[in-house]
Each structure stands twice: as C-alpha cells, then as structure tokens.
C-alpha cells in the first residue's frame, strides 16, 4: 500500500524532525533564546531544541533549531507539473526531427530585460551544456541562436521572426521586485501582438524561481524550473513541435 500521509524523517519513521535557522533582530540573551523558541513553536516545531545561538554585530542573533514538526504532509493533495512527455536521447531526438519535421528545428534563446545572468540559458543552449549533458547546440537537427544577455523584447521578437523560430527560450534569474514575472508577461504580450496564434513559436521560460504552475497566467507554453537539463528541454520541444503535431 502506498503511503498518503508522511512526516519529516530524522532517524525514526514518524519523528517529524526538522532543522531550521533564522536571525532575529535582537541581541543575544536569555530572552532572545525564548523568542526563538516561541517562533519555532508557532512554526509547528514541538518540542523544539535550540542548539545554537550567536550574536552578530550589535543587534542581531542567529539561531539553529531542531524539533519535531507537528504538521502532516498529505501526498494525495500535492500539486505539481509532472513531466508529460517522454525523455529521449539525443540520437532519437535528431532522428525524429529529421524524419518527421524534415528541416532543422529553429530555437532562439535569450536573457531579457536587465538580467545579465546567462548561466541558465547557456547551460541549456551552449554545446558545453550542464552536468555532463550537452546543450541544444549539440543536437545536429537543431539550429540554435543564443542572443545572450540583456536582450530587449523587440530584439527578441525580431530575431524569432528572422530565424523562423519554432521555439523561443527565455531565461530569467533576477527576481527582485518580480522582474522575472514582469519581463515574461511583457515578452508574451509582444509575441501575441506580433504574430497570429498559429504562427507563434513555442514560448518557454526558465529560471530557478519560477512557479511551474504559472504557465497559463504568464502566457507561456511551458515553464522550466531549477535543475532542468538540456535533454529535458529538447525532449519537450520534439514532443510539442513534432510528435504531437504529426499525430
């Protein structure tokens, strides 16, 4: 029987053991330790053990607390975006594109807005790839244009048109003041305005702080979160653009 309710695991099933650390803006004394334990209790840690407290500067104290959390996790109520496409190898991907699309699959990628962090888009697109997996440039049947950092939305739309992009990949790392959400909405609005529904490339955003459930709200076809590999993206592209459409 599969479990539907679980608790955190320290060293015994069901012990609920959890570790948290935080800073309170008060100097370290007995009262500060009491305050930390009060917070832990409100977080559901009961009983809580204060294992470390250290004052930093004049008016701050850092705490580490271990304790049993009384909350239960109900697995049948968990909502996530499950991978709804098969994960393929680079050979299979190239073969499918070659046989069914019969031209190169065109991908345009960029970091938009003021975001200068190309690490995400480079990990997915650069031939170098990430974690031993080659990036999309490695796929013989893909034509990849990586526009790099701080690309404006009009530049991106123009490049997508010029390259006849089948898919546009946008990476967003900076999230201050929700810049990633703002930039993504600006981007999808621009594509909706510039191209009719059937002609639009697949719009994909990625970044460590996106909520994968927000695709509809942001107007993108797919969101990829932290830890996504180039192969997953390539498999998704082939699934959406080739396999499904040729059915």
């Amino acid at each position: 029987m599969t479990k539907t309710v679980v608790r955190p695991y320290g060293d015994t099933t069901g012990d609920g053991m959890t570790q948290v650390s935080f800073t309170l803006p008060i100097p370290h004394d007995k009262k500060a330790e009491g305050a930390a334990l009060q917070l832990a209790a409100k977080m559901g840690l009961d009983p809580a053990m204060l294992v470390h407290a250290k004052q930093m500067g004049d008016g701050f104290t850092f705490f580490v607390i271990y304790g049993s959390v009384r909350h239960l996790v109900e697995l049948d109520k968990v909502q996530v975006v499950e991978r709804d496409f098969p994960l393929l190898g680079s050979k299979e991907i190239n073969t499918i594109v070659k046989q069914k699309l019969r031209r190169k699959l065109s991908v345009v990628g960029a970091c938009i807005g003021t975001d200068a962090h190309t690490v995400g888009i480079d990990a997915i697109l650069n031939i170098k790839g990430i974690a031993g997996e080659k990036g999309l440039e490695y796929y013989r049947e893909f034509k990849v244009v990586n526009m790099g950092a701080q690309v404006t939305v009009p530049e991106l739309v123009a490049a997508a048109k010029q390259e006849k992009a089948d898919a546009v990949l946008v990476s967003q790392v900076v999230t201050q003041r929700d810049a990633h959400l703002y930039n993504t909405r600006e981007m999808t609005a621009a594509f909706r305005e510039a191209m009719p529904a059937g002609k639009r490339p697949l719009l994909i955003v990625g970044g460590p702080r996106f909520d994968e459930l927000m695709a509809g709200e942001l107007g993108v076809d797919r969101i990829f979160g932290r830890g996504t590999t180039p192969r997953e993206v390539a498999s998704y592209l082939v699934h959406s653009l080739v396999t499904q459409r040729s059915k």
């Binding site: 650390s21 935080f22 800073t23 250290k54 930093m56 701050f60 850092f62 460590p208």
Partner: peptide, 13 residues
C-alpha cells in the same frame, strides 16, 4: 550563492 542575495547570517557564516 545562487539562492538569495546574501543575508546577514550568510555573511557571518
């Protein structure tokens, strides 16, 4: 690094 801009406690550690 790669998680948040450093907190006070991150810098202290």
């Amino acid at each position: 690094e790669a998680v948040v801009t450093p907190w006070l406690s991150d810098r202290d550690i």
